[in-house]
Nucleic acid binder design. Structure first.
Length: 739
DNA sequence: TCATTACTCCTTTTT
DNA sequence: GGAGTAATGA
């Protein structure tokens, strides 16, 4: 027996594939071939006829990972993959279970899944109804309380009244309780419910539990270090009978503590699942020795670890890790762009290049710069397609047609486009609905026959309602694409954007067209709406060569030849709030995040920190991240500051790191001291430089990007930019090295 | 009813 | 520097 899925596996990997019976924990470090082991293992179980594909529960952390696994298993087992009904994220599997048994938890099977915006709206309503001061207790505060409880598997009645570990606790419980009531009245579930309600279902209903324990004869969990308590409880329940649960994870990559992930799940695996076997995968096939060394030295600063040392499979030391000090965040983006230009000139595919940031606000500088330098890029997990205003509007229409009692969507579109049904009318409808305790849609049907509303409002409301009814009638008669087009026509929504003359109204219409295009990938309206709620992202085209720009969190599980991690500054990374709120454990999580980032790189790693950065629009100084000094010096190579004003002045260095951080002298003062600056204000910096240009000189212009000087006429300079020839003032140009 | 403006408080990370 | 909101005016 030597099926092809065994070939090229090392001893530990084979072990993990073969060990099919009983609990198993695979501790898989970054780049150790985890996905291969997972897919091979699944293929092995199916191939050996230990279980049908439909009897395997395989949980991944992201939809992307689920999809990738599906493709890879499909390559091994062929069409049998179609039987794998239970491969997906915890949330999508939870939703599936919930739809099948919704009645048992006071929902209907066509319930809608709420997004954060909707959640906040509901909470605001609740807060208002029990007279809580929104200023003292912002809705977000309650939302995070509720999410915490849900992550722990606690419904309102289980939240112990004596758990007084936070201010406003009683209020929170009250809000939680009323919030849940409201959700079930809206026939809706939020993300937390997709896990919590299935758990309740299984805890309450023993025969159902037995059924699913039988169905799932093998359970496989990816990214186990990121599971929270509900997820743990679900797994525990479901695996009790077969005991065939295999979890893959890496405690050094646990980065979702803020979302309720509990590292103890992985740390206590042996205790929780008796007789568990543990296999370590420590051979890293991804990175060069220098990169791996940097990662290892950094993460060794963490205390709470299971203990695992990655060793390099690659013979190659590779380039040293580059650490760069720059003057400002703008310079940082410029430097990264220049480096990427070098990668482009090597004719590399840019899909192998990524810029990873700690927080999404850092992306702006890079996007601006990439546009100026015409570097093609994609933002991964950035401003989501489905979160755009026009897309949400269209979806609101569709959701309302699917579920007319969805008050939140009703409110969203009742006056979009303008129908003369403004705040006043809406308030009246709301009051009446509350009085009769029915939905906005239902009350509207009633009050168009009374005189509660003024004459015009009544007529307008009536036509709005009959429009919805006419769409609802057609749901089962025409296909969902035609229906959507009809809705957009009838409602005047498309016309609204067509009539608007703002620069982005055209792209909004494009987006709507794209949405309609996507509809064809689904069988029905409800299938599409489910997809939208669960998979907030839209796939990127992977065919074109583009730099990826994303957060470190969304980079988990990916790998790139070239990786840039800017913003290595105290406060940014490690993130200040994380330190303030969680102290040392917060710091360790940040360090793990840095470790994740570093181990994404296969052969080239670039780290940088800026000395000055705008925070809330004000220039603020920052000091290099402690993480830089925690990387052992033998793996790194330091570069000088990249700026015309501060050339040759190294900011970060191992030897004087501590001294520097205790030094009260600011970056600005240091520069003044060495004569680079003469009491200049920061804002003057960009135009303070006299320049002297000659033809062929490479120059840079903030608006047009890089170019080459063609001709000079005093201070009027003719420059060839990427976008064409322009005559610009010398004072707007900066010199660039000609190389 | 809707558009404009002044003013507040921000920002971590995602299913 | 920006999004969301409350207050003001047309």
């Amino acid at each position: 027996m030597n099926p092809n899925y065994f070939s090229d596996l090392n001893v530990q990997q084979k072990d993990a594939v073969m060990h099919t019976e009983g609990p198993l924990l695979i501790l898989a470090g970054a780049g150790t071939g985890k996905t291969r082991v997972l897919t091979s293992r699944l293929a092995h179980i199916i191939d050996q006829k230990k279980a049908f594909p439909s009897n395997i529960l395989a949980v991944t952390f992201t939809n992307k990972a689920a999809k990738e696994m599906q493709v890879r298993i499909g390559n091994i087992i062929g069409s049998a993959i179609e039987g794998m009904n239970w491969l997906g994220t915890f949330h999508s599997i939870g939703a599936k279970l919930l739809r099948m048994h919704a009645e048992e938890v006071d929902l209907k099977s066509d319930f809608t899944i709420l997004d954060t915006d909707d959640q906040l709206k509901v909470i605001k309503e609740v807060i208002k109804s029990i007279n809580i001061d929104e200023k003292r207790f912002p809705p977000r505060y309650f939302l995070s309380q509720i999410e915490n409880w849900k992550n722990k598997g606690l419904p309102p009645e289980k939240v112990a009244k004596n758990e007084l570990d936070m201010i406003g606790h009683e209020k929170s419980i009250d809000v939680y309780d009323k919030y849940q009531n409201r959700l079930s009245r809206l026939n809706s579930a939020d993300f937390g419910d997709l896990l919590l309600l299935p758990l309740e279902l299984l805890q309450k209903n023993e025969s159902l539990l037995n059924k699913y324990q039988r169905i799932f004869s093998y359970i496989l969990v990816d990214e186990y270090q990121d599971t929270n308590s509900v997820q743990y409880l679900l797994l525990k329940l479901l695996s009790q009978r077969s005991l065939n649960i295999a979890c893959v994870g890496d405690d050094d990559q646990s980065i979702y503590g803020w979302r309720g992930a509990d590292v103890n799940n992985i740390l206590n695996f042996e205790r929780d699942f008796r007789g568990a076997k543990i296999i370590r995968l420590e051979k890293n096939y991804r990175s060069t020795k220098n990169i791996l060394g940097a990662a290892r030295s950094l993460i060794s600063n963490n205390k709470d670890r299971l203990g695992k040392e990655l060793s390099s499979y690659k013979e190659d030391d590779g380039d040293k890790v580059k650490i760069n000090s720059v003057w400002s965040a703008d310079d940082e983006a410029r430097l990264v762009s220049d480096e990427i230009d070098k990668i482009i000139s090597k004719k590399e595919n840019l899909n192998n290049t990524a810029v990873l940031v700690r927080a999404s606000f850092q992306m702006r500088e890079f996007e601006d710069r990439f546009i100026i330098n015409s570097i093609p890029y994609r933002v991964v997990g950035g401003p989501r397609f489905y979160e755009r205003q026009e897309i949400r509007d269209v979806i609101a229409y569709l959701q309302l047609v699917a579920n007319p009692n969805h008050d939140l969507k009703f409110e969203r579109i009742i006056n979009t486009p303008r129908r003369g049904l403004g705040d006043t009318t809406l308030r009246k409808i709301n009051d009446a609905a509350r009085r009769d305790d029915i939905s906005l849609y239902d009350i509207s049907k009633k009050i168009v026959h009374t005189d509660e509303l003024g004459g015009t409002a009544r007529v307008k409301l009536k036509s709005f309602i009959s429009m919805i009814d006419s769409w609802r009638e057609k749901v089962n008669k025409i296909d969902h694409i035609t229906l959507t087009e009809l809705i957009l026509e009838d409602s005047g929504y498309i016309a609204m954007w067509e009539n608007e003359k703002t620069p982005n109204s055209e792209s909004r219409i494009e987006n709507i067209k794209e949405l309609i295009g996507q509809l064809s990938e689904f069988q029905s309206l409800s299938e599409f709406l489910d997809h939208v709620s669960l998979v907030m992202d839209v796939e990127n085209d992977e065919n074109s060569s583009k730099v990826s720009l994303m957060t470190l969190h969304s980079a988990k599980g990916l790998e790139f030849d070239y990786v840039f991690i800017p913003g290595m500054e105290e406060g940014v990374f490690p993130n200040q709030r994380s330190l303030d709120e969680k102290g040392n454990s917060g710091l360790e999580e940040e360090r793990r995040l840095a470790h994740v980032g570093i181990t994404r790189a296969k052969k080239y790693l670039f780290l940088s920190h800026a000395q000055n950065r705008r925070v809330y629009g004000n220039w603020t100084q920052s000091i290099p991240s402690r993480f830089l000094s925690e990387i052992a010096p033998e793996f790194i190579e330091q570069e000088m500051i990249y700026s015309d004003y501060t050339q040759g002045y190294p900011s970060f260095s191992h030897t004087n790191y501590n001294q520097k951080n205790n030094n009260s002298q600011t970056a600005l003062e240091r520069l003044q001291a060495i004569g680079y600056l003469d009491n200049l204000e920061y804002d003057d910096l960009s135009f303070s430089q006299e320049i002297n240009v000659k033809p062929n000189q490479r120059v840079f212009h903030t608006k047009f990007g890089y170019g080459t000087v063609i001709d000079c006429d005093n201070d009027r300079i003719e420059v060839e930019f990427k976008t064409g020839k322009k005559i610009v003032l010398a004072s707007y140009l900066e010199l660039v090295n000609n190389d």
